[in-house]
């Protein structure tokens, strides 16, 4: 049970990464590699700040802002200086590697016995249960601390999911979505599509950094290497989400991304449990994404099979 709750929690935390990437990869169709750097940025900055005694909430918020700044720079490199998307992302990601090392001062920071964003929730749980350290969930004992992280991640993730959905349905959000679809049309409607790209990348990388901050707090450490391969993981999660419940509407897409991330995490947990060498994990993920990219019909038909094939794109 601990394993499952753990997978769920990481899944929920990483679903913020997926949501961020949903904005860049799917809404504005920008292949943004900054992600690998900005998730580490979120983790390292929040870890350093929390260690320095800052409120974990404030630290997490600042991580979000730092991620946004990184995304913004990538956007400006692309729109202002006409650097190709991928190259702009690589430049930013490479720069962030050094920046992260600078922030942390070394290659990793442990977060031991420090307050996290779930601390408050944990206290509340302890009061409610009258001081028990463990609680039975479906007959399994689970530590309150784990439960608190899970709970607060769930709440945070749901909240952000709803906010994001509502945001994307506003006038501004509608134009944002159209930017990836048809930039010429967006310009013809009087909107600077470059501004939309910069804003979207900022929002996207903010969410990614937020995810990084929460991940560091959950894992109890920040590591300069932790971002490597995150982009591919996020992509894999989005693809699974789309295959699971399709992309017929905004709400569906966002829910899909969240569920996809969780499912992906569960699959990984199970695979590891069955003896998959953790070192091979990234190779397997990359193969999976490769397959998903070259056989676009495969996943679509999968979702059709699961859901009666009544949906149309």
């Amino acid at each position: 049970m601990n394993l499952i709750i753990g997978a769920f929690t990481i899944g929920l935390i990483l679903s913020l990464l997926s949501l961020g990437m949903l904005i860049s990869f799917r809404m504005i169709k920008f292949t943004d590699i900054t992600v690998d750097g900005s998730i580490t940025l979120g983790a390292s900055l929040s870890a350093v700040l929390i260690m320095a005694g800052w409120s974990p909430w404030l630290a997490t918020l600042l991580a979000f802002l730092a991620g946004s700044l990184a995304g913004m720079i990538t956007g400006i490199l692309h729109t202002r200086f006409k650097i190709q998307e991928i190259l702009a992302g690589i430049l930013m990601m490479t720069a962030l590697y050094s920046i992260n090392l600078r922030i942390m001062g070394r290659s990793n920071i442990p977060l031991l016995d420090t307050a996290t964003v779930s601390s408050g929730f944990e206290k509340l749980l302890i009061e409610l249960t009258g001081g028990e350290a463990k609680l039975l969930v479906f007959g399994w004992p689970v530590s309150l601390a784990d439960l608190a992280v899970f709970g607060s991640s769930l709440i945070l993730c749901t909240l952000i999911g709803i906010l994001l959905t509502r945001f994307l349905r506003t006038h501004f959000g509608t134009v944002l979505r159209a930017t990836g679809n048809n930039p010429q049309m967006v310009r013809a409607q009087g909107v600077n599509n470059n501004t939309m790209v910069i804003f979207s990348l900022a929002l996207s990388n903010g969410l990614v950094a937020l995810s990084g901050a929460l991940l560091a707090q959950y894992q109890g450490f920040a590591d300069v290497q932790m971002g490597i391969g995150m982009m591919v993981w996020g992509l894999a999660s989005i693809i699974i989400g789309e295959a699971l419940i399709g992309k017929t509407g905004l709400g569906v897409t966002i829910t899909g991304a969240i569920l996809g991330t969780i499912l992906f995490r569960l699959l990984i947990a199970i695979a590891l449990r069955w003896g998959l060498n953790p070192n091979d994990l990234k190779l397997v993920t990359a193969l999976f994404v490769f397959l998903a990219l070259v056989t676009p019909g495969m996943f679509k038909s999968m979702s059709n099979k699961f859901f009666g094939g009544s949906r149309h794109a």
Binding site: R166, T170, H171, F172, V175, A178, V186, Q189, G190
Partner: peptide, 20 residues
């Protein structure tokens, strides 16, 4: 509807209100 709603504010501000 989403396409048209964008045109309904051509060249104007895009507020954070539900569009459709």
């Amino acid at each position: 509807a989403e396409n048209i709603v964008m045109a309904m504010r051509r060249g104007q501000s895009r507020p954070l209100r539900q569009a459709v």
